[in-house]
Amino acid sequence: MNKVNFLIYSDGFNELDEYFFKEVEECDNIIVIKKNSIFNNSFLQKIFKIHTSFKINNYIKIPFQSVWYKFLYRKFDNNYPTIHIFFSSWYYPDYFNYIKRKNSDDKLVMYFGDTIKSKKKVVKNLAISKLKSEVNQIFSYNWDDVREYGLKYLPVSYSKINDFSIIPTKNKHDVIFIGASRDRYEEIVDLYKQIKNTNLKYFFYVVKSNNESDSFNDPNFILTNKTLNFFDYMGYVKSSKWIIELLDPGTVGTTLRFWDAIMYNKGLITNNKQVMQSQFYDSDNIIIYEKSNDIDLSKLLNGKHIDYFYNGENSPRKFLEVVKSSLFDLKEV
């Protein structure tokens, strides 16, 4: 990644976001700007958050947002071009123009780690046709959005944890599901009921999205308003044999659950047919289903050793190389 600088504008909302680019944060040519921790001063950070809030600016645009730009734009101690990578919570076209005025050689990239449909609910003035004229490249993790809007596909990068001493120890389970209910609650419950009727040790942690109120009187099925923190989540991943991945309707692409399975050598149960095209696909280790009663749960008891031989295929270094190669002639950079 030499001869190019990267300014990465991440969401930075939780511990998980810390691990997207963690392994490259010490590189001299990479700076990660986290939206929730731009300022050490908590008062300034709160004012910035309010001033740039989409909830407010969707209805009335607050003036003088340019006062923040000098704090966001960073210079490197070299003359190489800079690629600005914006996660989709950073849709600020006026700031894009500010960057272009500062250095016309800089490149701008927008990355969608959510579906465009869900992002449009948050950013009311987001229009992909307009965005294409505002930035140099647009990537998405979702194949449906890539096809519909003519974008480039790129899965979410993820820094692998190698030191598990920082991860809390959890009880061992054969299979786990951890995630929000969203528009898939009935499917989650169907899977739970099917697995409960086996000898498998299971754990479901479901965060309410639609005020669900079921009570299963089961300590291994938790329905809650509280998001599980990243380190506890990784504790369950470490202690499990299989992980369940449920794609939301309208999503076609690998999620972080897929990469958790690949990086940490866990079996995967998924409704994502696209994984059959992955270099890691093995029908003994990855179960693809359409309906929950199609799943052969006996596979979860075969005790087979799983090793995908992951070698950084979804690391932030690979992510940045893909972005760079889409913008520059690699022979010149």
Rank of each mutant, 00 (worst) to 15 (best):
M1R: 14
L7I: 05
S10E: 15
D11Y: 04
L16I: 08
F20K: 11
F21V: 08
K22E: 14
V24T: 12
C27K: 14
D28P: 14
D28Q: 09
I30V: 13
V32R: 06
F39G: 12
F43W: 11
F43C: 04
K46A: 00
K46T: 12
K55D: 00
I60S: 05
K61A: 02
I62V: 14
Q65I: 07
S66M: 01
V67H: 00
K70A: 02
T82S: 09
F86K: 10
P93F: 05
D94F: 02
Y95H: 04
Y98E: 02
Y98F: 12
I99W: 06
K102Y: 02
S104H: 11
S104P: 04
S104M: 12
L108W: 06
G113I: 02
D114R: 06
D114S: 13
T115W: 02
T115A: 04
K117T: 13
S118A: 15
K120N: 11
K121E: 11
V123Q: 10
I128G: 09
L131G: 09
I138E: 07
W143M: 13
D145I: 11
D145P: 13
S159H: 08
I161P: 10
P168M: 04
F177D: 00
F177R: 03
D183P: 01
E186T: 13
D190M: 05
Y192C: 01
I195H: 01
K196Q: 14
K201N: 15
F204W: 10
Y205P: 03
V206L: 03
S213R: 14
S213W: 06
S213E: 14
F216T: 05
N217M: 02
D218C: 08
N220Y: 15
T224F: 12
K226M: 10
T227I: 12
D232G: 03
W242D: 03
V252W: 08
V252Q: 09
T255S: 15
L256T: 13
A261P: 13
I262N: 03
Y264T: 00
L268S: 12
L268M: 11
N271S: 08
I287D: 01
S298Y: 03
Y308W: 05
F309E: 11
G312K: 03
L320R: 12
S326W: 01
S326G: 05
F328C: 06
D329Q: 12
L330M: 14
E332Q: 14
